[in-house]
Write a protein that binds this DNA or RNA. Structure first.
Lengths: 353, 353
DNA sequence: TTGTATGCGTTATCAG
DNA sequence: CTGATAACGCATACAA
């Protein structure tokens, strides 16, 4: 029970074995007799031996750590979406014996930090968050030879890298068409920042949905901002006071969608009855009842749904795989579910002019 | 520009200096001539030299890393509060040259993980999240001799450790008294899980506020659960359909408070006019407008406010200080602000029986 | 002011 | 199957 720092040397001395044998026994090498292995493992357990991570990193060149570089002072990252993704990724790392390293840095320092992580061999790979249209981090990481997986996609047609993305385009197209089928024609899009790659794709899907039904997209119904609650609120206030308010809105996240609901409530406008709302639902944990992994049976929002937490898990798996057997860069495109809740309904008579 | 892995050895060879001198120059030792130092720094920069973190950790015994162990599958951690705290702490670490290590593990593994981090010397210290009534992690970490700071407090009167907490008791007492001064008597408390230390203190404050004004706390107005949106919604539905609905509610977080608003809206009950709401506001970034560090001028919720992000920053500072000059365990108790928004008002005539 | 020699705790190579 | 022995890359006590 001595909590003294027992290292490989002292442990092997107490066992009357060489460090080599002890190390091999512990790391599951085949050439150790079962009897010695048992003895070693038992002793390691009894003396509470844990290999020093810095020593083994130094010896192996592997850090058994994955890095996440998150930009400081930008709301779109330090937000609930990020937390849920991290939770999912973290689960995977833990069960595979990896650690998660997070650096919160200003955008201007990003490149330096990636270089640092790579040359310091601080991490074995990184996850890239919130890719831009053509994100410079992708060629950078490739040149650094640091394994990585992108959560989302970037527009490099000629370039192969590993990514995991939701089919934002098809999801938003389907949602738009669903609204049109309900009789809506004036449909607003409350989108994320269009510097983000995913936001562009969502807009494309929305526009494709409209034009496929012969409706011309209009600038006055399209908004693009950080996906925070007050954004949804403010845009909705403006929209509802405009000459031709929309009868339906498509919102890029539940967060601004809550702002939409608040703005409507203040005006006595009933979601689903007077104005329809479809939100992109990342299955953020704090919005769902705490006693179930699954979302509730009868959700409030009609939503395009895809769990960002599961995405975190999967992205982490893909990265670990890439780290442990380099070469194959796999990518995955997930289709989101369209889940009918209480915030959509046929265009109300009141709303039609 | 060669991206080859240049280490101390090759760097010193190219400079015609010993590793010692180069190391000293880079680490700011005083006994190096300014001229050599300049030369060394310039070369290090040119060759893109970064010391291997595992090597220096091994040599110094310091990891320059802070650990955060977060329990898996519990909503109160994998949530926006956590994300904001992490953001704040991460800023501090980065500017001080520290890394943040996160392990997401099941509750049952926590002790093992803390022991691991300590004996592996993986981290120089840890931040303890969400302390319980008497949290076993505190004596554990003390016995492991691992520096730590608790975000919140635990009930160990005889025990000195470092913590940073908001004065939850006084905040909830003030809020309660404020509501009573507005004429409210039936005031509900929608609290967090009372296994959490902070939730207990909040309830105490609430009860103290009531009794100080001669009102007896009643069980039927007190709720305790994970602070998620649907919780606020469901409790409010039940409350509003009960025999004597409250005329005011005190909510432990903005998240369930949004659920409260949703439930009221469905019933055509106007916040601030028909029913007053005060929420504890952690200044979660996604609830505030994205273009300002400060919360909006005219907030929606009347709230007890204390930025959890600032708490993260400060807690990290305290921990680093403790790591770099051990001994003094400092603690801080912050008073929260009471900010008047639009969700409070005098008890309405309609609501009085 | 600079250099030499040694240690940090592992893993890996090569003999036996 | 087991054991010396040499890296891994840096920091530091001690010498010069």
């Amino acid at each position: 029970m001595s909590d003294e720092s027992v290292n490989l040397k002292t442990l092997s001395e107490r066992l009357g074995l060489s460090q080599t044998t002890v190390s091999r026994a512990l790391n599951g090498f085949p050439e150790v007799s079962e009897q010695t292995r048992r003895r070693v493992i038992e002793a390691a357990d009894r003396f509470n031996y844990r290999p020093s991570s810095s020593a083994s990193s130094l010896a192996t060149g592997k850090a058994r750590t994955v890095g996440h570089v998150v930009p400081l002072a930008e709301h779109h990252m330090i937000n609930p979406h990020f937390a849920d993704f991290i939770a999912g990724a973290g689960e995977t790392y833990s069960t595979h014996g990896y650690d998660m390293l997070i650096r919160v840095v200003p955008r201007a320092d990003e490149e330096r930090v990636y270089r640092e992580l790579a040359t310091q061999k601080r991490v074995d790979g990184v996850v890239v968050h919130g890719p831009l249209g053509r994100d410079p981090r992708i060629p950078l990481l490739q040149s650094l030879q640091l394994p990585f997986v992108v959560h989302g996609r970037s527009d490099y047609a000629d370039n192969e890298y590993s990514w995991l993305d939701v089919n934002n385009r098809s999801a938003f197209r389907r949602a738009t068409e669903f609204l049109i089928d309900l009789g809506h024609e004036r449909i607003a899009l409350i989108n994320g920042l269009e510097t983000m790659n995913f936001a562009k794709r969502r807009r494309k899907g929305y526009e494709a949905g409209l034009t496929s039904r012969g409706i011309e997209p209009e600038q006055r119904y399209i908004f693009s901002q950080d996906m925070v609650e007050p954004y949804g609120y403010e845009v909705t206030c403006r929209l509802m006071e405009s000459a031709a308010p929309p009868t339906a809105v498509l919102v890029s996240s539940i967060l601004p969608a809550m702002g939409v609901v608040r703005a409507l409530a203040e005006r006595g406008i009933r979601p689903g009855t007077d104005v329809s709302i479809i939100a992109f639902d990342d299955c953020l944990s704090f919005l769902h009842a705490s006693d179930s992994e699954r979302p509730k049976d009868v959700p409030y929002f009609t939503a395009i749904r895809s769990s960002i937490r599961l995405a975190g898990r999967r992205a982490a798996q893909m990265l670990l795989q890439q780290i442990e057997q380099p070469g194959a860069t796999r990518s995955e495109l997930w289709e989101a579910d369209l889940v009918i809740g209480q915030t959509t309904g046929p265009k109300s008579q009141a709303a039609s002019q």
